[in-house]
Amino acid sequence: MSDLRREALKIAMPWLATAVLLIIWELACIAFDIPEIILPKPSKIFTVFVARFDILMAYCWDTLWTTVIGFLLAIAGGLLLGLAIGASPFVYSGLYPLLIAFNAIPKVALVPILMIWVGVGSLPAVITAFVISFFPIVVNVATGLATIEPEMRDVLRSLGATRTEILTKVGIPRAMPYLFASLKVAITLAFIGSVISETVGGNNGIGFLMLSASARNDAPTTFAGLFAIAIMGVLMYAICALVEKRMTRWAFRGEIVG
């Protein structure tokens, strides 16, 4: 019975922790009499969230699809480049410094350039989400490939396997857990990317909604937008984690031995 209770408590913990945080927030707002324009009470944010649910959803939807498209592109591009970098020392030494340099650029700085190139709208958001979530995928896939045991490689080479065969039979399966681990990081980064783009120069999406709300000193709506982003982030993260478990069951060995 106590085992069951522990299990139930484990599942309830994230909700409890969130609830406690919100209650402290609510009480602090009341106790210190904080003006709504600075920090609205969670109850107020929730009211606004419900009242403006339709509008929020519409803007969320914009952010969600731009993020997901950018993210999917990042998976495709990151996987390809990661494989190339991991498989060839020449590609590695050639491109790695460039990648690091590019990754060091604050992505906010890219948005104005993107607006010059492709105009205002969803496209800059997609591209920003792509460039920001691309890097961890490349690095992880390349690491997965580079850490193949030399003996494994020797076994295949002495069987007469070609480079392509070694890549498809060992390299890619070996890189999969690394890829899926990176997706969890990449999806949250993708949200950051698209929202940055919407905030700096967009006419759409939750970032734009927050920016216009804050211009009207409408703090509760701005916070409602933040909550919406956080919720989307957690949901997408959960989906990535689920896909990870499904695709690379062997890497979570302990859990299915029973």
């Binding site: 003996e151 494994m152 076994v155 080479r157 002495s158 069987l159 007469g160």
Partner: peptide
């Protein structure tokens, strides 16, 4: 590298994503 040699090391180097059967069949795919 000469082809079709069988090799076994101290480290079994089996692929964790393949069953025993699929691991053993690896040379047949190559």
């Amino acid at each position: 590298p000469i082809k079709g040699v069988g090799m076994a090391f101290q480290n079994p180097t089996l692929m964790p994503w393949r069953t025993t059967m699929d691991n053993i069949l690896l040379p047949m795919e190559v």
